Amino acid sequence: KLCLVCSDEASGCHYGVLTCGSCKVFFKRAVEGQHNYLCAGRNDCIIDKIRRKNCPACRYRKCLQAGMNLEARKTK
């Protein structure tokens, strides 16, 4: 099974979405830290295992598009 954000090996369902541990922690920190990420490109950066750290804005956008939600952990 692959992470729906970066296509690395998924470690489980986190915040409602099948993700790897790295994307799970990234999403939690992004939401709780209330980061205002900005993409230096055109908001279409490739997010994969190798390049997932290059653009936090696009990675966060991809987390949201996949359906990640901090509240999902509280309902399970």
Rank of each mutant, 00 (worst) to 15 (best):
V17R: 05
A10P: 13
C20R: 01
C13S: 10
C3W: 00
K49G: 13
A10G: 06
N69D: 10
L4D: 14
G21H: 06
N54I: 13
K53C: 04
C3F: 01
L64F: 06
H35D: 13
V17E: 03
G33F: 09
D48G: 03
Y37E: 06
A30Q: 04
K62M: 09
H35G: 14
G67P: 00
L2F: 15
I47Q: 05
Y37Q: 05
Y37I: 07
C39Y: 00
A40V: 13
S22F: 14
C20H: 00
G16Y: 02
G67I: 03
K53R: 11
P56W: 06
S22T: 03
S7W: 06
A40Y: 10
R51M: 14
I50L: 14
R42V: 14
K62F: 05
D44H: 06
K24Q: 14
L4K: 15
C20K: 00
D48A: 03
Q34N: 15
A72G: 11
G21Q: 15
F26D: 00
C39T: 02
A72T: 11
K24F: 07
H35R: 09
R59L: 11
C45R: 01
L64I: 15
C13H: 15
L70Y: 14
A66H: 09
L38Y: 10
S11N: 13
R61A: 15
I46E: 12
G67Q: 03
S11Y: 05
C45N: 00
L2H: 12
G67N: 04
V31S: 14
Y15Q: 07
A57M: 02
C39N: 02
C20F: 01
H14S: 07
A40P: 08
A66E: 10
V5W: 00
C45Y: 02
I50G: 13
R51P: 05
S7Y: 06
F27G: 00
T75L: 15
E9P: 15
L70G: 08
G41W: 11
R29H: 08
H14A: 07
L2I: 15
L64Y: 05
Y15I: 04
R59G: 01
C45W: 00
K24T: 06
A10L: 08
V25C: 14
G21L: 10
K76A: 14
A40R: 09
I47H: 04
M68G: 02
G33C: 05
K24Y: 13
C20V: 00
C39F: 02
N36L: 10
C45H: 05
C20A: 01
K24W: 10
C45P: 00
S11C: 06
R52Q: 05
K1S: 08
G33D: 15
V5G: 01
